[in-house]
């Protein structure tokens, strides 16, 4: 299992989760958890996924969401989970 976090930051709108999850299904990425919050009036959604069995490489996944984010007027970023673990967990 290779865990990664997809973060979506920006203004809330219809279809964010639909767009994201349909792509994940297409490339065989399992969604493990979803959470969302509003910080400083900015909508933030984070999705924990398993990219271990993905049919495409990590850099391709990351590039896809960067593009999708730009299209939807949101900031989307896929990052390996260890960056958050190392910063917030001892």
């Amino acid at each position: 299992m290779v865990k990664a976090v997809l973060s979506v930051i920006g203004c809330d709108r219809v279809g964010i989760i639909a767009a994201v999850s349909s792509y994940f299904a297409k490339v065989n990425v399992n969604i493990l958890d979803i959470s969302q919050t509003t910080m400083d009036d900015i909508f933030t959604m984070v999705m924990l996924v398993d990219v271990g069995a993905a049919t495409v490489g990590f850099s391709e996944l990351a590039a896809y969401f960067k593009e999708l984010g730009a299209e939807m007027g949101l900031q989307m970023q896929l990052q390996h989970v260890d960056i958050f673990n190392s910063m917030h967990k001892i």
């Binding site: 973060s7 930051i9 673990n85």
Partner: peptide
């Protein structure tokens, strides 16, 4: 969730802003 959305947002804010 294993790690909170706030914490994830904090890391992203540190890097981007």
């Amino acid at each position: 969730m294993f790690i909170s959305a706030d914490e994830i947002a904090q890391t992203i804010r540190m890097i981007q802003k």
